[in-house]
């Protein structure tokens, strides 16, 4: 008889009913599944957090070397704030961008190991995989934010510290991680091999960074680059963070936030549709 580790008849019937679950229990399962997949990512990081530190090296150097130097020459119009303060939100968003955009690499690695295939054969909605992964990416992104903000504290950068600014930063970093990790997952689903993914990842990071308002205002860019910068989600992230952390001017914040959220939803939908490609 099927007993012990296997289910009783009663359990089996319960499962049959489960196929026609109500919408509310479906949503509950979806949230639970996403959280579980997020938990898996967090557990992985706890066992081996090396990447969090190695990924932070580059942004730290930007702030320390580039920031400190350009503060002295005052060559970039910053609207009255010291250059290092102007660029801190830019570098903060850069550090989150860098760790998120290579997130798809983990997906390809998992695919090579058969982990993705095994997960896809489970009774778990496809979108929960994508959302769970973005949660993992958010944990990574937040770790970078902590490192950069601590460094800003040490460098005595003039930041508007408050509960609001800290919570706001956390929220925006989560959104940024979500967008760029989804973007990365889309690339991973299309590329499917490490070599191709690394190639395209390298090609994209620099333009995303330089065609944004991270280290100089959009107004000083040539016209064609301004067009790119305005379409670049990184610019929105930088502008929101700059409002919260440095300037305290919130003119376009809601618009930027709204655009960012729409972009995330679109990215999640595309990533969900492409995710099963990783199984073949």
């Amino acid at each position: 008889m099927r007993e012990g580790i296997f289910m009783s008849l009663e359990e089996s019937e319960k499962r049959q009913e489960g196929y026609n679950k109500s919408l509310s229990s479906k949503i509950k399962k979806w949230i639970n599944d996403s959280l579980t997949l997020g938990e898996m990512e967090a557990r992985r990081l706890r066992h081996d957090p090396t990447e969090l530190f190695t990924r932070a090296v580059q942004p730290v150097l930007w702030l320390l070397v580039f920031g400190e130097t350009f503060t002295r020459i005052k060559a970039i119009p910053t609207g009255g704030v010291p250059y290092i303060a102007f660029m801190t939100p830019g570098i903060l968003s850069q550090s989150v961008l860098f760790i998120s955009i290579f997130y798809g690499l983990a997906l390809i690695w998992d695919r090579d190991q058969g982990i993705i295939q095994k997960f896809l054969a489970l009774p778990v909605p496809r979108s929960a995989f994508v959302v769970g992964r973005t949660m993992g990416a958010a944990v990574r992104g937040l770790s970078q934010a902590v490192i950069i903000l601590l460094l800003a504290l040490i460098l005595k950068v003039d930041i508007r510290w408050s509960i609001f600014s800290v919570l706001g930063t956390i929220f925006v970093v989560v959104l940024e991680s979500a967008f760029f990790s989804c973007f990365s997952m889309i690339l991973a689903s299309l590329m499917r091999t490490r070599e191709r993914f690394m190639g395209i990842g390298q090609v994209l990071t620099m333009p995303l960074f330089f065609a944004s308002s991270a280290i100089y205002p959009i107004s000083i860019m040539p016209k064609w680059l301004q067009v790119v910068a305005v379409a670049n989600p990184l610019s929105y992230v930088v502008e929101i963070l700059r409002s919260i952390l440095i300037t305290g001017v919130y003119d376009n914040m809601l618009l930027h936030l709204g655009l960012l959220i729409v972009m995330i939803l679109v990215a999640i939908i595309i990533a969900t549709l492409l995710y099963p490609r990783l199984a073949s």
Partner: peptide, 13 residues
């Protein structure tokens, strides 16, 4: 229940 050919348990957990 599906067990793929590649080693699909997560080595980092």
């Amino acid at each position: 229940g599906y067990v793929p050919q590649a080693l699909s348990s997560d080595g980092s957990l």
